[in-house]
């Protein structure tokens, strides 16, 4: 997907967030030498093409009181993984769900999901419900609770571009 220099500049300018100003896109455009209409049009174009997947607030789960998170991984037969993933993704408490490659012998798991909760007990209750609803109760799994968090930021893609909620596409581990 080609991204123009203007689009990159706009995304870079938005890396720190939208200006908290009544006319934020006018303020943003001013910095980049664009009119408000041009800034809006550029952003809408990015959204229509799916480069920008959503626009909104990014919360820090820890500060919001979600002190526990687990990455739960499953070894689901390949023929079942998509159906299981779809059900799992829709279960309460599940924030992300991905299929990833197995890495035998160290790592036999191919379905990954993240569960956030106020504490570990809440995470495990959500897991119980999700496993039941996705038909995964008998499927081998492991629960990896998070310990220390060392870094959490949007990824940076060099001086001309920036950002991505690692919260979404790359947030496998959050």
């Amino acid at each position: 997907m080609d991204v123009t220099a203007t689009e990159r500049a706009l995304l870079a300018a938005l890396a720190d967030g939208l200006p908290l100003h009544p006319r934020p896109f006018a303020a943003l455009g001013e910095r980049l030498g664009l009119s408000e209409a041009e800034a809006l049009e550029t952003l809408r174009g990015l959204q229509e093409r799916g480069v920008v997947r959503r626009f909104g607030v990014v919360v820090r789960h820890h500060e919001l009181g979600y002190r526990a998170n687990a990455m739960v991984v499953w070894d689901v037969p390949d023929a079942q993984v998509e159906a299981a993933g779809r059900v799992l993704a829709a279960a309460p408490g599940i924030t992300l769900c991905y299929r990833r490659p197995r890495r035998p012998p160290d790592w036999p798991y191919n379905l990954f999901c993240m569960i956030h909760g106020r504490d570990r007990a809440a995470v495990l209750r959500a897991l119980d419900w999700a496993a039941e609803s996705a038909g995964l109760r008998e499927i081998p799994r492991e629960v990896l609770f998070s310990g220390r968090r060392f870094k959490q930021r949007g990824a940076v893609f060099g001086p001309a571009s920036a950002g991505e909620g690692t919260w979404t596409s790359s947030t496998a581990a959050s």
């Binding site: 820090r60 990824a155 893609f157 909620g165 790359s170």
Partner: peptide, 29 residues
């Protein structure tokens, strides 16, 4: 309110979320 939430660290960012792949980048775990 948004300014205060950002100041308090509840919000890390307020803006677009985009796909690294859409910008020619890559992401992995």
């Amino acid at each position: 309110r948004l300014a205060a939430l950002r100041e308090a660290g509840v919000l890390s960012r307020f803006g677009p979320l985009w796909k690294a792949e859409g910008l020619g980048g890559a992401v992995t775990l």
